[in-house]
Amino acid sequence: MKKLLLTSSITFALLAVGYGAALSVLPNRVQRGTIGTTQWDRNIICLQSYLYEPTPDVVIVGSSLGTRLSELPAGWSNLALAGGSAMTGLETVRRSGRAPRLVLIEMNFIDRGVDEATVNGLFMPVAHQLRGATPAFRHENRPSVVTSWVMVDLYQRLEWRLNRALGGDGVTSERAKPQAARLSEVRRASMIDRQLAKYEAPVDEADIAERVTGLRRTIDHLAERGVAVALFEMPEDASLYDAPAKVAWRAALAEALPRDRYHWVDGVRWSDYHTTDGLHLAGEQAQRYTRHLVDAVGRLAQAEPPETR
């Protein structure tokens, strides 16, 4: 047993030290590449970067809708999580004990609760401190990410050469993906129908009340730490605006978080925006909404703070 423990511990130590040293000399694009990561990996990378990098001035928490916000000003950090909700990002901000100047909360999928497993994983004792001290233990530096970057790079070089040798245009399958990923109108319409069916399902008033109360409690907790909070709703497909679930949530939020006491970013007309699938804004549309948000935050900074509780 002693020998087993000793050899495995030495191997572990050698790998940890060697890998840490290797990371420091690898190009930045390898360390922070998005190749070899899933949307859940990217969520964790995003949350860890908030925990281990200097505290940003403005933090956005939200769902996959918020991940589309692009070209953010310096000092802004986007903790919107694909497949998740603002609640997980908000809980991370709360538990981190850090105090950004402003937290922007995207309300579109606020019905999704906190992903406890993810948040507990972030703050797992020992692992949390280890990641803080040694970047090699952070999610963005996982050996599989580095390995897959090398593998995909090799594959694309090979594919490109083969393609050119055969008289092609040199476009690799990976580079061709974004174009191919565009949805047909038929499929887009069916996705909007499916989303509408979800929004038309009966809502649980008690559940909404409980979640809204939890949200208000977290916002008040942040306010006590000196963190300002503003709420915003991103545009989705216009046909979804008046769906029963949307209306019910909007009413509950307006009642629990009234505009005279909480900051709200002015809404936009949903029909002025186009989505790729009924929910997510297309690239240039997302940039337009980002500008709207940045302008609103600028106005908030000049405005009187809402009446304190």
């Binding site: 495995s8 940890a16 050996p143």
Partner: peptide, 21 residues
């Protein structure tokens, strides 16, 4: 080979665990 193999596994548990499910 067991000791080194377990050492590699420990390293990957520390650096390459997925999101808990």
């Amino acid at each position: 080979a067991q000791g080194p193999a377990l050492g590699v596994m420990l390293f990957l548990i520390a650096t390459n665990a997925g999101s808990p499910g």
